[in-house]
Amino acid sequence: MGRGGDGEVHVTETQSQPDPEVFRRTQASPEFHELKRSFRGFAFPMTVAFLVWYLLYVLLSTYAVELMSTPVIGDVNLGLLISFGQFVTTFLLTWLYVRHANRSIDPKAEAIRVEIEEGQV
């Protein structure tokens, strides 16, 4: 790539794109199905668990006001602790997903990418 006198970027080399058939074969491959299964096996249950946890918090805040206003320590009540727990679980789930992706998803995706680029699919 180089810059022309007009300030625009001009591409001097072209990078060949894989044939669409390569992507079809990749999508049908057992490795790709394993990658999808690994992602879904983590993402779907964790998403459902977090949504249930969040919905429980909203329902308790709306319909169990007395329970949520139960003092725990001084002015800190149960509702405040549960709402803080929402933040903690958000960060926990993010950390768990990053760890899962680094261990299970990224290596499989990288192997598939290399196969596509080398035309071995």
Score class of each variant (00 low, 15 high):
Met1Trp: 09
Arg3Ile: 11
Gly4Val: 10
Gly4Arg: 15
Asp6Ala: 11
Asp6Thr: 06
Val11Ser: 06
Val11Glu: 15
Thr12Ser: 12
Thr14Trp: 10
Ser16Ile: 09
Pro18Glu: 03
Pro18Arg: 02
Asp19Asn: 13
Asp19Ser: 11
Asp19Lys: 01
Asp19His: 15
Pro20Asn: 09
Pro20Ser: 02
Glu21Asp: 14
Glu21Tyr: 08
Phe23Pro: 03
Arg24Gly: 03
Gln27Arg: 13
Gln27Asn: 09
Gln27Glu: 13
Ala28Gln: 14
Ser29His: 06
Ser29Cys: 04
Phe32Val: 05
His33Thr: 03
His33Tyr: 04
Glu34Thr: 11
Glu34Leu: 08
Leu35Pro: 08
Ser38His: 01
Phe39His: 13
Arg40Asn: 08
Arg40Gln: 10
Pro45Asp: 06
Met46Gln: 13
Thr47Phe: 15
Val48Ser: 02
Ala49Gly: 12
Ala49Phe: 14
Leu55Thr: 11
Leu56Asp: 08
Val58Gln: 04
Leu60Trp: 01
Ser61Pro: 02
Thr62Gly: 09
Ala64His: 09
Glu66Ala: 15
Leu67Asp: 08
Met68Pro: 07
Met68Gln: 07
Met68Thr: 05
Met68Tyr: 02
Ser69Tyr: 08
Pro71Asn: 07
Val72Ser: 04
Ile73Lys: 08
Val76Phe: 12
Asn77His: 14
Asn77Cys: 05
Gly79Ala: 04
Leu80Glu: 14
Leu80Trp: 10
Phe84Tyr: 12
Phe84Cys: 09
Gln86Met: 11
Phe87His: 03
Val88Gln: 00
Val88Arg: 00
Thr89Ser: 06
Thr89Phe: 10
Phe91Asn: 01
Thr94Pro: 00
Thr94Arg: 01
Trp95Ala: 13
Trp95Cys: 01
Leu96Thr: 02
Tyr97Glu: 04
Arg99Pro: 00
Arg99Cys: 02
Ala101Trp: 03
Asn102Gln: 14
Ser104Gly: 01
Ile105Ala: 07
Lys108Cys: 03
Ala109Glu: 08
Ala111Glu: 15
Ala111Asp: 12
Ala111His: 11
Ile112Cys: 09
Arg113Gly: 12
Val114Asp: 04
Glu115Val: 00
Ile116Gly: 03
Glu117His: 04
Glu118Tyr: 02
Glu118Pro: 00
Glu118Val: 01
Gly119Thr: 10
Gly119Gln: 09
Gly119Phe: 09
Gln120Pro: 00
Gln120Cys: 01
Val121Lys: 02
